[in-house]
Simulated assay, not measured.
Amino acid sequence: MTSSTVAGQGHGTLADRAYRAISDRLVTLRIRPGEPINDERIATELGFGRTPVREALKRLEGDRLIVSYPRRGTFATEVQIADLGYLSEVRQQLEPLAASLAAQRAGEDDRGVLNRLSAQLADASDGGTDLIRLDMTVHRAIYAATRNPYLEDTLVRYDNLATRIWCLFLDRLPALAGHVHEHGPLLRAIIDRDAEKAAALAAGHVEGFEAAIRGVI
């Protein structure tokens, strides 16, 4: 499931495309926590067959975005605020590692992507889901630049779960637009191959996110 960016949903198999489309709905809470998941209805809405949708749902269950119960059905997982600390423990270790590796390993294509995202960040002002999707795209570009598919895969999953918590409190956290713009200096550090600075900025970003959420719960 590497390089599962929010952008680029036209790439990959039908199951890959269904996975990205459904994941986006779950992460941004267009499918609400606890909402039942009907594979036939989703297949119709997305224009996919039921087989790729079912394959996608199996992957999403492994990502802890949905849960299936015998004889009850499949549901979007609830957003557990108690998980914030657990997620932060992992991300505080892995996000700085990813930033450092990206600074060391990013190729010219990666650096081109990061430069374009840096320009998008400079122009971004919307505090809604469009900004959230940009935040997710930035994270995934950094993860891809690590050239470590296992680290990339792991961080995409944890970033998805953290983003769901953010979306749950979006109307109470307007200042988090600034949280997304913090990626500007981080991207610049990676582009400049400053691994130490990139790691420090990534660590501060995770800490700031957790502090902001805890400030409203």
Rank of each mutant, 00 (worst) to 15 (best):
G49S: 15
T51M: 13
T51W: 09
T51V: 15
P52R: 05
E55L: 13
E55H: 10
E55F: 03
E55Y: 06
G62Y: 04
D63E: 15
D63V: 00
R64E: 12
R64H: 13
Y69M: 05
P70Y: 01
P70H: 08
R72S: 14
G73A: 06
G73Q: 07
F75Q: 04
F75D: 11
A76R: 02
E78I: 06
E78F: 06
I81C: 05
I81M: 12
I81K: 07
A82I: 04
D83W: 05
L84I: 07
L84D: 02
Y86F: 09
E89A: 11
V90P: 00
V90H: 13
R91I: 08
R91W: 02
R91K: 13
Q92W: 03
Q92T: 10
Q93C: 08
L97A: 10
L97V: 09
A98E: 04
A99P: 05
L101P: 00
A103V: 07
G107K: 01
E108I: 07
L114W: 01
R116F: 14
L117K: 01
S118L: 14
S118K: 11
A119F: 02
Q120V: 02
L121N: 08
A122Y: 04
A122V: 11
A122E: 13
A124Q: 15
A124T: 07
T129C: 01
T129Y: 07
T129P: 03
D130N: 08
M136R: 15
T137I: 10
A141N: 08
A144P: 04
T146V: 05
R147Y: 12
R147V: 01
N148T: 00
N148Y: 09
Y150Q: 11
Y150L: 08
D153M: 13
L155Q: 03
L155E: 11
R157A: 14
Y158R: 04
Y158T: 13
L161N: 04
A162M: 15
R164C: 06
W166L: 14
C167R: 04
L168E: 14
L170E: 12
R172Q: 14
L173Q: 03
P174F: 02
L176V: 06
A177G: 14
V180N: 11
H181S: 09
P185V: 00
P185T: 02
L186T: 12
L187D: 01
L187W: 00
I190M: 03
D192R: 11
R193M: 08
R193Q: 15
D194F: 01
